Simulated scan of single mutants.
Amino acid sequence: MTKQEFLNKFESEKLKLGEYIMILDKISNAPLVIGCAFDQGMWKVYKTKERGGHYIIKETGSENEAFDFFNELVLSAHNRLLN
């Protein structure tokens, strides 16, 4: 899925991330971020730790592949909140 398709789904399904915030326009080092951003020619799915500092979970040249993976990550976080 594309970034816009993901955003539409995220809003329509009212998905929650708990203590995490979502950033999709850049890679952030702020605490407790889950994100997907186009950086240096690649799509990068990443998280940050409680005290900041990011780590890349997946890196791909495909926007669809990145947001399919990111969607699964977000759904997993959402489902953990519900249980």
Rank of each mutant, 00 (worst) to 15 (best):
K49M: 01
N79Q: 05
K26A: 06
I57K: 11
Q40H: 15
L15D: 04
N79P: 00
K14I: 01
S28N: 05
Q40V: 00
S12F: 01
E19M: 01
K44T: 12
K26G: 00
H78P: 01
E5F: 03
I21L: 04
T60H: 11
K16M: 06
A30D: 14
K16P: 02
V33D: 00
N64D: 10
Q40R: 15
D68W: 07
L32D: 04
T60I: 08
D25A: 06
Y55T: 01
I57V: 10
Y20D: 01
I57M: 13
I34W: 15
D68L: 10
E5T: 11
E50I: 02
L24V: 00
M42R: 12
G41A: 09
F67M: 05
M1L: 10
K58T: 01
Q40K: 14
K47N: 07
F69M: 05
F6E: 00
Y46E: 00
L32N: 12
W43C: 04
M1Q: 10
I21S: 14
S12Y: 01
A66F: 07
T2A: 04
K44S: 08
F70S: 03
F6Y: 05
A30R: 10
E13A: 09
G35L: 01
L7N: 06
Y20C: 00
G53Q: 03
G52N: 05
M42T: 10
F38E: 03
F70W: 02
H54I: 00
V74R: 07
N79I: 00
L73A: 08
A30Q: 11
N64I: 06
Q4H: 13
E50V: 07
N83W: 15
I21V: 06
Y46I: 00
F38K: 11
L73T: 02
